[in-house]
């Protein structure tokens, strides 16, 4: 099992860098001479020293990483604020600069994409966020909303009507089954087949006009 490097060095986790170095040097000095002793004792000391070296470099690498990101949660909060203020480019470059990419990172990235109208990329990032944090409702709800977005702006009934495509279904008359199939405020609400008739008449008119005649004299 890997030991906590701070425990190996015998220091507190919040120790500043210079004190950390001092502690590391002191510990190292303890074993520095012992490693040349013959037999068991020497080998053990050498192993200890290696452990110390590894622990020290681990801590340094870890701190360097964190230094670049600052405190992750505050950065995320900042990015969120930038997105709210509409500064998408700033938010994007801030996200790009981060080394750690937890679920929240993907979530924020997906919002940036979404605001840029890049829906496909947004979906990909959200899916990644969901994968990394399967139990998180914020992410899964957002993904569901995004997937439902395709049909937004219409109630399901209308979406279904529209989905029947360009051809108007002549069997489906408005008001059938006591259920109006369209919002009356909508265009042409309540008159569908009549419209087809009009369109046909206009077509016929156009044809006639092409031949020099006229079917509907007013247009």
């Amino acid at each position: 099992m890997q030991k906590n490097p701070y425990v190996i060095l015998g220091v507190d986790e919040n120790i500043p860098d210079d004190q950390l170095y001092e502690a590391y040097r002191k510990k190292r000095a303890e074993y520095a001479d012992a490693r040349f002793q013959p037999g068991e004792a020497g080998a053990e000391a050498a192993q200890k020293m290696e452990e110390l070296d590894n622990a020290y470099s681990d801590i340094l690498a870890d701190r360097k990483n964190r230094g670049a990101d600052g405190d992750v949660t505050t950065v995320f909060a900042e990015v969120e604020q930038m997105i709210k203020d509409g500064k998408l480019n700033e938010a994007q470059s801030r996200l790009d600069g981060m080394n750690q990419r937890p679920a929240e990172w993907h979530y924020l990235q997906s919002i940036v994409f979404y605001r840029k109208n890049w829906y496909g990329e947004s979906k990909k990032q959200l899916e990644m966020a969901c994968q990394q944090a399967p139990g998180n409702h914020k992410y899964s709800d957002a993904l569901m909303r995004l997937n439902n977005r395709m049909n937004q702006g219409q109630n399901p009934q209308q979406a279904k009507n529209n989905a029947s495509g360009q051809q108007y279904d002549p069997n489906q008359r408005p008001g059938q089954n006591g259920q109006p199939n369209m919002d009356p405020n909508r265009q042409m609400g309540g008159c569908g087949t009549e419209m087809n008739c009009c369109a046909n008449l206009i077509c016929a008119d156009c044809c006639c006009e092409m031949m020099g005649g006229d079917l509907i004299s007013c247009c």
Partner: peptide, 19 residues
């Protein structure tokens, strides 16, 4: 699925903005 998603999300955004 992918094609519908790319196209219809755009349409939905247009609809929303126009409204």
């Amino acid at each position: 699925q992918d094609l519908e998603f790319s196209l219809y999300t755009g349409v939905a955004a247009i609809e929303e903005a126009a409204a």
